[in-house]
Design a protein around this nucleic acid. Sequence first.
RNA 1: GGCGCUAUCGUCUAACGGUUAGGACAGAGCCCUCUCAAGGCUUAAAUACGAGUUCGAUUCUCGUUAGCGCUACCA
Length: 473
Amino acid sequence: MFRVRFAPSPTGYLHIGSARTFIFNWLYARHNGGTMILRIDDTDVERNTQASLDSIFEGLKWLDLNWDEFYRQSERGDLHRKLANEILAKGHAYRDFTPAVTTEGEHSGGWLFNPGMRELSTEESERRAAAGEPFVVRYRVPRESRESVSFTDLVYGPQTKATADIEDFALLRSSGVPTYHMASCADDADLRISHIIRGQDHLTNTFKHQLIFEALGVEAPNFAHLPLLIAPDGAKLSKRKHGPVVSVTTYRDAGFLPHAFVNFVCLLGWSPKDDREKLTRQELTDIFTLEGVNRSNATINFTDADPFDPKAVWLNAEMIRTMPLDELAAQLLPFVAVELPRIRQIAPLIQERIKLLSEIKTVADFIFHDALAPYDAAELIPQKGDAAMAASALASAEEILATATFNHDGLDKALRAGAELLKVKAGQMFQPIRVAVCGRKNAPPLFETLEVLGREVCLSRIAAARRLLKESA
RNA sequence: GGCGCUAUCGUCUAACGGUUAGGACAGAGCCCUCUCAAGGCUUAAAUACGAGUUCGAUUCUCGUUAGCGCUACCA
């Protein structure tokens, strides 16, 4: 019975590291025929935002990742408090009436608990609580009765920590609201989570969680911690420091294919061990195992100039190149204000020229704008040619295009014949035409481009180019 | 500071204790070609450092160094 959960706290948008955690959980669940649970860990009322919650749903929707059960911690407070009080009643926790220390508080060197509070008698504790004195409930780490706490991580192996190094952490805040540790463990126990797959930043917290599960009298779930995703500067990814490049929606808006993103992220901290890189979703679910997860942090390689990891871009370009044209056209639709049938015509022209879907706007700009952006007449002059050659090529092209069969083969034949007649190389004939119709030298192949543009547009742009050439002479 | 985790090309990674340390991306060069791409071929590039165990260490042990994480009434 495999039950896994992704438990984000809605205090920022869905970022790439969280997305990977979801994906690994999802893959693990699907691989094992288990249950994927989405649980919103919103116990920190101060920092929760609706925008953040929306961003989580938006991101997961885009990635086309689903879940089988959904919970919100804020609706389960009764359970958390009940279990916390059980722990208190059993004597595994105590009330700490010490007021929260101010910022200049003196707890500099390794205090584990507030002296005296652990030893308060039950009677006094009850009395002061009843009198309305504020308190937090702290776990009573069993330093006297026990040397250490241990568990075996499915990724990092056997882990042990001395109880002497674990502080008496809070279970309930003075407001009565459970802390992350309490709420998380209470829910994991109640939801019968079998495997907790989460970021390595929780590895040392796991000893505390182990203690909570024990106090609750339930068997602890299995743990698998994932190496962290870090920025090229070695720091943990953060919006403040690294900007929107860490947000999943940034990838979407830039024109990544959802699966390219998933594929890329899977390669960070996990390997199929057989040199395969491009993997379909089915292949990923088939071969994903925790044994393939490695232990060292992975750097996402980006710069200010180039905000996306080159490998992610490459994967995206690969998928764009190999996908059916109808599907590509559908993916391209949100990026331009053009009808689907027209995009379908353009798609073959740009399929192997764009790395990101959004690049359709620049690579095929000459199709979307009636008027070409101004260009220098010198651009029209072919390699090893002069203005006269450009002029005659364009004059000839105008004539040819007026009557030629307007498809690839027809244009190919007619234009090559025209070049021969002018005694110029094919390239010298084509270049002026390309610049005339596209407004620049680098563009998709000529014949297909002419065909998609249509006779009328081509002729008028060539006429305009001839005028430009004359004016600049 | 304390505790923990990690360390292979620039990046992501592979390698039962025995390999010329492999692959991919990015880079460089060549080819193909109507430009740009795409594609093909070639190339450069790594075991953090020091001990130990062993016939033999990227792999096991210890130490050093570095990076990261945790050390909250954040999650």
